[in-house]
């Protein structure tokens, strides 16, 4: 209990202090609502519009989770493939960088042409934005197996599959988890940006669409509420990845012990 308090209390105090200071400053300086809303105005939006925000959150979460899931699976598979030989790596690795450098806003309109606007196109945006960190980190992990252990596996005549399953993958796990952590936040960003261009404007618009609409109507408080909801989604996904990492690593890796 005490440990929990020690963990939770400091950030909560910082949060409350920040909110109070922001509220007081904005009131004292007389900053217009449409430029920067008071925290209490944003709370009011949460209070009054939470059913709407929750629906938007779900639409966005669906796309973000699909994109993130694809990043996890395909990122890891690509990294496994690249780790098989130096030649393969040299031939293909440069092209995976494409995913990191592609301006998703620019190709989202094409995704709409190819896949139609909606969940599929938005999830692909999330995937494109979030897959590279998974590839890069997983590959780094797969390539940095301890040489002594690798030699030992070879001495005992372990096959490719056994070496991969019993040695390389486990020792790459901390890196893979790091890649997933970065990808979790990026997937949310990719989804919001994807929604700007490829979202469908039906009864449950995603948070990205909510942001644009509120901005058009000068409702800065709603913009902030939607943005905070999106970061909450990112936080939840990050927490889930952290939990997964803890499950996988707590028994043997220094990063999850102590």
């Amino acid at each position: 209990m005490r440990r929990l308090l020690n963990g939770i209390l400091p950030p909560v105090i910082v949060l409350i202090a920040t909110i109070i200071i922001a509220e007081v400053l904005i009131r004292a300086l007389g900053i217009a609502e449409y430029l920067l809303p008071r925290p209490t105005a944003v709370f009011k939006v949460f209070h009054e519009q939470y059913p709407d925000l929750l629906r938007s959150l779900w639409t966005t979460a669906e796309a973000a989770l699909i994109g993130f899931g694809c990043s996890a699976v395909f990122g890891l598979l690509i990294a496994l493939f690249l780790s098989t030989s130096r030649l393969v790596q040299r031939a293909f690795y440069p092209y995976t960088v494409f995913f990191q450098t592609v301006p998703v806003v620019a190709i989202a309109p094409l995704l709409v042409i190819w896949f139609d606007a909606g969940l599929k196109a938005v999830a692909i945006c999330a995937f494109i934005v979030s897959v590279f960190p998974v590839i890069a980190n997983s590959l780094a992990g797969l390539l940095s197996t301890e040489p002594a252990l690798r030699d030992m596996f070879r001495l005992y005549g372990a096959g490719w599959w056994a070496t991969m399953w019993k040695l390389k993958l486990p020792s790459a796990l901390p890196n893979i988890v790091t890649g997933l952590r970065i990808a979790a936040g990026l997937a949310v960003i990719g989804t919001i940006v994807g929604e700007f261009v490829a979202g469908v404007l039906d009864v449950n618009p995603g948070l990205g669409i909510k942001v644009i609409e509120a901005k058009k109507y000068g409702q800065t408080d709603v913009v902030f509420a939607a943005v905070l909801t999106a970061s909450l989604l990112g936080l939840l996904m990050l927490a889930a990845v952290n939990f997964l990492g803890w499950l996988l690593l707590r028994r043997w890796h220094a990063s999850e012990q102590g």
């Binding site: 309109p109 709409v112 606007a117 929604e195 490829a198 979202g199 404007l201």
Partner: peptide, 19 residues
């Protein structure tokens, strides 16, 4: 009413229109 047509964001271009 918008229920008989699929509504998507406008991307500023005419690519989708041409296609």
């Amino acid at each position: 009413g918008f229920d008989k047509v699929k509504r998507v964001s406008y991307d500023g271009g005419i690519g989708n229109f041409l296609a």
